[in-house]
Nucleic acid binder design. Structure first.
Length: 354
DNA sequence: AAGCCGGGGGC
DNA sequence: GCCCCAGGCTT
């Protein structure tokens, strides 16, 4: 066994994390945790994971649930395609694998939302199979340990990292080793101010030996984020608000939001076309929401309807009490607006979904 | 290869 | 503010 793997396994037993809620769990829960942990930090995931397994204790329960219910439990976690794919995958597992989470890597990696690294993580952690993972932690650890230059998003760089990840695998103790890589990256080989004096492989680290720890891994090239504007039309009737289900592709796919417009003029035109009559209108305080690739400035426009709408809500739309809406599949900025709208709600209720 | 897809932690 | 996080999918 390489010294690298041996040192990591030894380090893990004494200094690794041993109380994460999905550790030692079955393949379903390991898979669920891995999906939630994609691009999301452990501390953020834990409360979502706890609520999720309580609601959907096994893959059959998840498959039996509605996509809407699944997304309601995903609300606030972001990257909602993960939630939609998770639900889709659960139904595939029920149909194609008789409700037993697949045992083979080739089957797991075919599930929607599961790529090479996530499939390998499930195989290594749940099945103790000899598979290499390559997530953010591993990329950082290997870039430093092996002294690999270049942004990991670059195809050639990523291929080198995969190659090293495979080459350094131990013959046994795969689950412990895999967890060690991630725990090391999360607690010792951190992005900023790494604790090299505590590192079990400091003696062989190329970055440390060549004084490049702070420079590796090479950061992603940055671009300016464009600014966009939007109006949220908060159509109220008493305590009820109108929400529309967004198309499954694009931002906040499959989630429930107030009607959204590019500007106030577009919102007014839509309002008139719907033959609605307002008894009062109010422009609420503008706020902004930042995504990875743009910043959205949101102006909430609150309108009290004079009469109850004659027509029922159209398909893909629904009227909900504000309090109910806070328990639905809504993105964070909508949660923010609804919380302002309903200041009488108790803190406990507002925080229920985290 | 590059863009899209959220939200938050930590500095 | 900035950068990244137990990535994968689409174009």
């Amino acid at each position: 066994m390489s010294s690298f793997a041996h040192q990591l396994i030894r380090w893990q037993k004494q200094h690794g994390r041993h109380h994460l809620p999905w550790q030692g769990a079955d393949a379903y829960r390991v898979w669920l945790s891995e999906i939630m942990l994609q691009q999301t930090q452990v501390a953020t995931v834990i409360p979502y994971y706890q609520r999720f397994v309580a609601a959907f204790p096994d893959v059959a329960a998840l498959a039996a649930a509605s996509e809407d219910d699944v997304l309601a439990h995903w609300s606030g976690l972001g990257y909602y395609a993960r939630g939609r794919n998770l639900h889709k995958a659960a139904r595939i597992v029920v149909e194609k694998f008789d409700s037993a989470f697949p045992r083979k890597f080739d089957d797991i990696v075919e599930l929607p939302g599961v790529g090479r690294s996530t499939a390998a993580a499930v195989c290594a952690l749940a099945y103790h199979e000899r598979r290499a993972i390559l997530d953010g932690n591993v990329k950082r650890v290997l870039a430093r340990y092996c002294g690999i230059e270049g942004w990991a998003g670059d195809k050639k760089v990523e291929e080198r990292l995969w190659q090293q990840a495979e080459a350094l695998l131990p013959e046994s103790d795969i689950a412990t080793y895999t967890q060690a890589l991630m725990d090391m990256g999360a607690t010792v080989c951190t992005r900023i101010k790494p604790k090299c004096v505590l590192c079990p492989v400091q003696a062989d680290c190329v970055a440390l030996a060549t004084d490049r720890v702070a420079a590796l891994p090479t950061p992603r090239p940055r671009k300016a984020v464009p600014e966009r504007h939007a109006v949220f039309l908060l159509l109220m009737h008493g305590n009820d608000i109108l929400l529309e289900k967004r198309p499954s592709s694009g931002i906040w796919g499959g989630l429930w939001c107030p009607p959204q417009f590019e500007d106030e003029t577009a919102a007014r035109e839509w309002f008139i076309r719907q033959e609605l009559e307002a008894s009062a209108g109010e422009r609420l305080e503008e706020f902004s929401h930042t995504f990875t690739h743009f910043r959205l400035h949101i102006t909430p426009l609150k309108v009290q309807l004079a009469h109850k709408p004659l027509r029922a809500a159209q398909p893909g739309a629904m009227w909900l009490e504000v309090e109910e809406a806070l328990g639905a599949a809504i993105p964070t900025p909508v949660r923010k607006v609804l919380s302002v709208l309903s200041p009488l709600l108790s803190n406990q209720h507002q925080n229920r979904r985290g």
